[in-house]
Design a protein around this nucleic acid. Sequence first.
RNA 1: GGAAGGAUGCCGGAGUGGACGAACGGGACAGUCUCGAAAACUGUUGAGGUCUUCUGGGCCUCCGUGGGUUCGAAUCCCACUCCUUCCGCCA
Length: 431
Amino acid sequence: MIDLRLLRTQPERVRTAMARRGSAELLAQLDETLHLDERAREIVARRDAIRARVNDLSKQVGQLRKAGDANAAESLQAESRILGDEEKGLAAEYDDVQGAVRDLLLRIPNVPHDEAPDGTSDHDNPVVKGPFGLLDDYPAHQRVPHWETATALGVLDNERATKISGAMFTMQRGLGATLSRALCQYALDTNADAFEEIRPPSLVTTATLTATGQLPKFADDAYAIERDDLWCIPTAEVPLTSLYGGEVLDEAQLPIRMMAYTPCYRREAGSAGRDTRGMLRAHEFDKVEILAVTTPAQGAEMLIELRDRAERLISGLELPYRIIEICTGDMGQSHHRSFDLEVYAPGCDNWLEVSSVSWFSDYQARRADIRYRTAGEKGTQIANTLNGSALAVPRVWAAIMENHRQPDGSVSIPTALRPYMRGATSIPAAS
RNA sequence: GGAAGGAUGCCGGAGUGGACGAACGGGACAGUCUCGAAAACUGUUGAGGUCUUCUGGGCCUCCGUGGGUUCGAAUCCCACUCCUUCCGCCA
């Protein structure tokens, strides 16, 4: 959620910043929020005044009863009863208006960072680093898409995955399955110097999925287990961000760094029919996420740390990559500033998004109610959250299949992964 | 899945309808004492909202969550959640 108080006190500043996202509807929402908020405050002031009067009368009733003056008590009670009815009406009205404000607030996106580039779509995302390792010319044996080569090598079996679970599910076998797991372990081990490894639940409550911003607006993108009112996580960001939800941390604890491997579940409601082949898009995939809870002041530096860590993983796999920054028109709802890492896959002839690193300012933390206290100071402050995919397995897997394919059809395992491959140094060509 | 008990402030723990934002103890912080420290003594010590004539003050809310009863609820009633113990089942 954005800071309602900021919207109230500096509406023009918020409006200007939000305008950069390029949505006229959004500006109307801001106005409506402001308007409803004003009404809510007016109602609550009247409600509280009545409550104060009722509280006062009740105290007097107590004293009169003690003193044995039943008649006087009765008459005050009657007065209080009438006030009570009035209060009930105002309270209901307040709950309605306040609820409407909250509904709006939950759907209003984050304010973009000042330095985030302007733009209207993903075409306007500037390349800020790289490309690195990109060849001028790719030989023919690398120009074959991974779904063909990997299937032929027996390490990808999407046909049977579909038989078991339906469209857009994938299955890796043999060294292909081992490679998936190796990528996870590589990502976890590489970041273990500073990040605590967590194995969180993959099923979360509605409240948890609301905290990170997926609900209420993007309910169609998530798998729901309605009978138990649980949701499958689309990313480890969801449970990790809410890990300290509702808690007040000591500033000295910050920044908190965590990482987790989890499966990720996405309905891909808007992308049916897109990227249906191979490993580019699936309903279920593996990912290692790195995440930080910081003070607002630590945010900018942490964003770069997470980005550097994601970059280190990719460059360690000897893959051609570049880093782009997401422009205001292409930014996700919760994002304050974000970068994507893209890997070039010569077989698909495409840049694949393999990591997204984002700073959420206090947007998620306000929803999740993650606060911190500075020693010696009164009150609490809302934390900042950041996260990044350390490594999203399927697309990296695909990029390895295409970039590391040898002229004989085998696929060489990047050195960094070999410790996790039970001695295998390559996926041998089909005989 | 069945049964019983429980949920109160930073922690422990009282409180079963009237001045309770909450006794008492511990912790933490500040002061007194001291060369300094310990001990002792004194004081302070939750969060959120809103208004304001704003280095302050007023009012409202919060005792697991949500409803209800009442002039008045931590306290009574209902539902739910979570925890503990026992039984059953189980990777």
